[in-house]
Simulated assay, not measured.
Amino acid sequence: MKRMPQLASLLLSCATLTTASCSKENAAPSGPKEYQLEDRVTSTTAPESDYLSYDNESGGTTALNHVPLPATYHFKYPRKPGDQLSLLASLDGGEAAAEITASILLDGRAVKKETSRSANAPAVPVYVIGQ
């Protein structure tokens, strides 16, 4: 019986530590974090994208014309919650059955993917970090 207060105190201490560590794990980081960003563009109907633009590693936008498909761009990217990532890929004219898929991956995990099927086929996935 003399050990009951000590045991209760020990259990209370363990519960407090567990709760504190859980709340820290679930809290979203407020500052920038370096992500491994990967943009992928594919098409089952066209050999190239007539226009492609993506957010690059310096925070600017890279725009390219006549890009052979499939195309993949990857780099490290420091961003914080609430920051937006976007990718735009299109096909020029073509058939009504034209198809293009654009995907954004963060740290190897697909976070946004869009497939478009039309004569001009623009695919524009946009992802907000922490979404």
Rank of each mutant, 00 (worst) to 15 (best):
M4H: 03
Q6N: 06
Q6R: 12
S9R: 08
S9N: 12
L10S: 14
L10C: 04
L11W: 08
L12T: 13
L12Q: 15
C14M: 13
T19L: 14
A20S: 10
C22E: 04
E25N: 01
N26Q: 07
A28D: 06
P29F: 10
P32H: 03
Y35H: 15
E38T: 14
V41K: 02
T42G: 02
T44A: 13
A46S: 12
E48N: 13
S49W: 02
D50F: 04
D50L: 00
Y51L: 09
L52P: 05
S53T: 13
N56H: 08
N56P: 04
G60P: 02
G60D: 09
T61N: 09
T62N: 06
T62Q: 12
T62M: 02
L69W: 06
Y73Q: 12
Y73I: 08
Y77V: 04
Q84R: 15
L85C: 07
S86Q: 15
S86F: 14
L87H: 07
L87V: 08
A89N: 01
A89D: 02
G93H: 06
G94S: 03
A96I: 08
A96T: 14
A97F: 02
A98T: 10
L105S: 10
L106K: 05
L106T: 10
V111H: 06
V111F: 05
K113V: 14
E114I: 11
S116W: 04
R117M: 09
P125R: 07
V126C: 04
Y127G: 06
I129S: 10
I129P: 13
